[in-house]
């Protein structure tokens, strides 16, 4: 990653006044990246708020350093996601690259009131994976464009906590799920297998898979809506 250090994009950062970069802001995240990113062997940790701020920096200022920080954080995770679902290199690498480029191009469509940065990146990765599969001769998955758009409905604002809190609540609730429910939720997203195969694999009847998923969804929903 040392190839990055001299990149002109990073020179645009205001390094002279580090005290102006408040934690959680885009500038703070980009500075953090400058200080740690190039030297780190594993990708950076980035809070949801900071990632959201970086996406907005791209939308408002085409901020290349913000892009670099997002790339360092998300590209290896998107690649991991794609590989979990059966993609192999070089496709997984190329598609992860394209997903992050889509983040750059679509940044103005990110609405931090509606979704956390990781959720938004997830939907882009999911849709681009589906598009890639559809282009394969035996592809056959829901056309991505038909998944609900970000802007097409408004949640009941009074029932919902703000996005950051909601995300934390969701994460806590997922950590607190009974192991079997948590496993089924993970499998639903990260294993490219139908429920019927999961059923075979875990030795649980399909009806039980569905009822456990229902229980899990009810708990998570309660947590996200601020009910416990």
């Amino acid at each position: 990653m040392d190839v990055l250090l001299p990149h002109p994009a990073l020179a645009s950062l205001d390094m002279a006044r580090p005290h102006t970069a408040a934690p959680g802001t885009a500038r703070w995240a980009a500075r953090l990246y400058c200080m740690t990113g190039p030297r780190m062997s594993t990708p950076s940790a980035l809070t949801g708020e900071a990632a959201g701020a970086l996406i907005q920096r791209i939308a408002t200022a085409r901020d290349r350093a913000a892009f670099a920080a997002l790339f360092i954080h998300f590209a290896p995770r998107v690649k991991a996601y794609l590989r979990r679902l059966g993609a192999v290199d070089p496709q997984a690498e190329d598609l992860a690259q394209e997903v992050l480029l889509a983040v750059w191009h679509k940044a103005d469509r990110f609405d931090p009131q509606r979704a956390a940065a990781s959720t938004w990146v997830f939907t882009i990765a999911r849709n681009m994976r589906i598009d890639a599969l559809r282009r394969e001769p035996r592809g056959g998955i829901v056309p991505a464009d038909d998944l609900p758009d970000m802007e097409d409905d408004t949640p009941a604002a009074d029932a919902m906590l703000i996005v950051g809190e909601r995300d934390r609540a969701l994460r806590d609730a997922m950590a607190a799920l009974p192991a079997e429910q948590a496993r089924l939720v993970r499998l639903a997203f990260l294993e490219d297998k139908p429920h019927s195969e999961i059923e075979r694999q875990l030795g649980i009847p399909l009806g039980t898979v569905k009822s456990r998923l229902r229980l899990a969804m009810q708990r998570l929903r309660a947590a996200m809506e601020g009910r416990r």
């Binding site: 940065a117 938004w120 990765a125 999911r126 997922m174 990260l190």
Partner: peptide, 15 residues
């Protein structure tokens, strides 16, 4: 949102 938090929690694979 669940997908987003699972993505966040994945062990990154080096590019």
């Amino acid at each position: 949102a669940i997908g987003g938090s699972l993505l966040e929690a994945l062990t990154p694979e080096a590019m």
